[in-house]
């Protein structure tokens, strides 16, 4: 048996504390009253306001129009996250399919062009993107929120690498079996890519879920508020002697963590299962 080394454990424990403490602190603080937090600082022990705060955050109608509840924000964030993940997977898979399996002019050049867009983050092209959406009258729509960000160099790259690792004989067998390009894609490649799709789903869902700048710019209608904007708007009210509702901000933050964690937990299982069981 290996000897237990106290020093190694100390480092590991420190690491765990370092990663977990802020989360615990947010969770605990969200159960205190706002004034309590303001006067006594963050807390590591549970307070007595938990249920009250969470109920309020989820159902209280806030915002200028008085229609924005936590549930609505949660729904919007989910739409963003799912729309991003599903849309990006669909789009990048098809792009990668074209790049890998079809011989056409400048395919390599095209791939590198797509790849190069990795170097250009959203922030660089945010003004032109905004203008395009504005001229298409897509401001304040889910379409406008999701579609402009769907092209994914990362996804295309991952799927391209994956497709290239699929043995050629599989394509040849499918061709002899009379499967055309569409059939081969749907009947063979899509089922084979399940693990890859799970991995990309995790990344893209969280990417969409955490979007802040783009929704802020694209939507003025409060019914499109996402959780990220909700948290920010609670903390923005520091006008005069008003104390921000720290507890609510924390509660929202905790709520905002739940779906991504759930996604990771669910898909991680699939991911690992796929990795250990599949052989191509």
């Amino acid at each position: 048996m290996q000897k237990i080394k106290p020093f190694d454990h100390l480092i590991l424990i420190l690491g765990v504390l370092f990663l977990c403490a802020p989360v615990v602190m947010a969770l605990m603080s969200s159960t205190h009253a706002a004034i309590d937090i303001h006067s006594n600082g963050l807390s590591l022990l549970p307070g007595g306001n938990g249920i009250e705060t969470y109920t309020k955050v989820l159902t209280h109608k806030g915002g200028f129009t008085g229609d924005v509840t936590g549930l609505l924000m949660l729904r919007n964030s989910l739409i963003m996250g799912l729309g991003f993940a599903v849309g990006k997977i669909a789009l990048s898979m098809m792009a990668a399919y074209a790049l890998v399996y079809f011989r056409f002019r400048f395919a390599t050049l095209l791939f590198w062009a797509i790849f190069a867009t990795l170097l250009l983050p959203l922030e660089v092209r945010i003004m032109p993107s905004y203008q395009v959406m504005s001229e298409l009258h897509l401001l304040n729509t889910y379409t406008g929120l999701i579609v402009p960000l769907l092209a994914s160099a990362t996804g295309t790259f991952f799927f391209r690498q994956f497709f290239r690792s699929v043995p050629d004989e599989l394509l040849e067998a499918a061709r002899i079996d009379g499967a055309g390009p569409v059939k081969f894609f749907i009947d063979v490649l899509v089922p084979l890519s399940k693990t890859m799709m799970a991995a990309i789903f995790i990344i893209m869902f969280i990417y969409g879920w955490n979007q802040y700048l783009w929704p802020l710019l694209m939507t003025t209608d409060e019914s499109f508020y996402t959780l990220m904007r909700g948290i920010k708007s609670i903390l923005q009210v520091w006008v005069g002697s008003q104390i921000p509702d720290y507890n609510e901000a924390f509660a929202l933050a905790v709520l905002a963590m739940v779906p991504p964690v759930a996604v990771v937990v669910i898909f991680q299982r699939m991911f690992i299962k796929g990795l250990t069981e599949s052989d191509k």
């Binding site: 004989e169 040849e172 002899i176 499967a179």
Partner: peptide, 29 residues
């Protein structure tokens, strides 16, 4: 096209569809 030639081929690495059952593999064509 290969499918129109009325031939069947057996590959060195079998080239079975990994996600399909034996039955579906045989039935696919």
């Amino acid at each position: 096209d290969p499918a129109e030639r009325d031939i069947a081929m057996v590959f060195q690495n079998y080239a079975l569809y990994p996600h399909m059952s034996v039955r579906d593999n045989m039935a696919y064509g």
